[in-house]
Design a binder for these strands. Structure first.
Length: 119
DNA sequence: CGGTTGACTTTCG
DNA sequence: GCGAAAGCCAACC
C-alpha cells in the first residue's frame, strides 16, 4: 500500500473529510457521539476510527461537541487534553452536566431532523 | 509493510 | 448498573 507522507489524499481522505464535515455541522449547544458519526457515514468507518481521527484534527473542527456513548468527555482519558476542558467548552455552549459529570444524550444529542430544536 | 495503539460501541455475565 | 471480552478501523512506530 502506497503510504503518502505528510499529505493524505484519496478515498480514505474523503472519509476523513466526511467526519470533519459532520462534526463541523453540529449546531452550538448540541453534541454527537462517535457511534452516531459512524452511523451517519453508513458505518463506513467504526466509532473507534472516528475517535482516532478526531484525536488528530484541525483546530477549526469543533471536536469538543463529540462525546462518547455515555455522554462523558473521552478527552479526559487521553491526557493530551486538560481534564474538564471539553466539559467547560460544552458548558460555554449551554450544555449542562449532571453530578456524574455527564450530559444527557437524550436531550443534547443532535438530530438533523430537529435541526436546533428539542421541544 | 506488519504489529500496536486509541478521544469507541455493543453484548454478555 | 458495572466489568470483561469482542468487534472495529485508521494512524503511528
Amino acid at each position: 500500500m502506497a503510504r503518502v507522507h505528510g499529505h493524505v489524499q484519496g478515498e480514505a481522505g474523503a472519509i476523513r473529510e466526511a467526519v470533519f464535515a459532520i462534526v463541523s455541522a453540529i449546531p452550538r449547544g448540541r453534541v454527537l457521539n462517535y457511534g452516531a458519526v459512524s452511523r451517519m457515514l453508513d458505518s463506513r468507518i467504526s466509532p473507534l476510527a472516528v475517535g482516532w481521527m478526531l484525536h488528530r484534527c484541525p483546530d477549526e473542527i469543533p471536536w469538543h461537541r463529540v462525546v462518547n456513548a455515555s455522554g462523558r468527555c473521552s478527552t479526559d482519558r487521553s491526557g493530551d487534553i486538560p481534564q474538564g476542558l471539553q466539559r467547560r467548552m460544552l458548558e460555554s455552549e449551554g450544555v449542562v452536566f449532571d453530578s456524574g459529570g455527564a450530559l444527557e444524550l437524550e436531550t443534547y444529542l443532535w438530530r438533523p431532523d430537529m435541526e436546533d430544536q428539542h421541544d
